Amino acid sequence: MSAPVKETDFLKILNEELLSDNWGKVTKYTLDYRRRDGTWQRQTREVYDRGHGAACLLHNPETGCVLLTRQFRLPVWLTDGSAAFIEAPAGLLEGARPDERMRAELMEETGFEVSELEHLFDLQMSPGSITEVLSYFRGSYQERQRTGEGGGAESEGEDIEVLHVPLEEALLMVSDSRIRDAKTVILLQDLALRELQAAKD
């Protein structure tokens, strides 16, 4: 995705200050923004850029289960002290095509090798402060497609537990806050709507 120009009819970027350039970049912007009433307002914003990513929910039509992961997430622990967090497999693109990267993440995190994935949509994850766009996928899996152990990359500090959860139970886990990950909720609700529509047809 190309970077926007520095000035438009509604926006003038006056200054960019790089605050951090470690795992991702944090940049402080000073800008003039033209409001809807035509007046200009000086604003300051900090933007975090760590690249774009992909997420996928796999569903086993034979068992009715979805494939989820459970792992430690430091930001979650800092927020509420949770030792583990349940979510759909996901990862950063790091220059790869979203579908290619997603297949690699599925293999790395869950041990399942899946050839066919359906691209659902691309969503801005946290538009107030983060540039990340996440590509969402869905697919099906069967036990015979397990070709590895999964668990993530130890060199990256990953220690991932693979979960096979019935879809109905996963939806209940959203209701009672056992699942609190936004991308996972979106994927579960999308699948539930598709299953409901299929039952009607």
Rank of each mutant, 00 (worst) to 15 (best):
L67M: 08
Q43I: 15
Y48E: 02
K25V: 09
V26Q: 00
H52C: 11
G24K: 05
Q43C: 15
A54P: 13
L58M: 07
T30S: 02
R34K: 14
R35H: 04
E62G: 10
R34F: 01
A54Q: 15
H59N: 15
H52E: 12
A54F: 13
A55C: 12
H52P: 12
Q43D: 03
L18S: 07
R34W: 03
W23H: 02
T63L: 04
N60M: 04
R42S: 11
Y29N: 07
L31W: 06
G53C: 14
D21C: 08
R35I: 00
R45G: 04
S20Y: 00
E62Q: 08
C65Y: 02
R34S: 01
W40F: 06
H59T: 03
R35T: 02
T27L: 04
Q41D: 10
Y29F: 14
Q43Y: 11
R34I: 12
T39F: 01
A55H: 14
G64H: 12
R45S: 13
W23P: 10
G38H: 01
D21K: 10
R42N: 08
G24Q: 08
D37N: 05
H59F: 11
N60R: 06
V47K: 13
G53N: 13
E62N: 14
L18K: 08
D32R: 13
L19H: 00
W23Q: 15
E62M: 13
G51N: 12
K25I: 07
T63G: 08
T44V: 13
W23N: 09
T30F: 11
L58H: 12
L19D: 01
N60V: 05
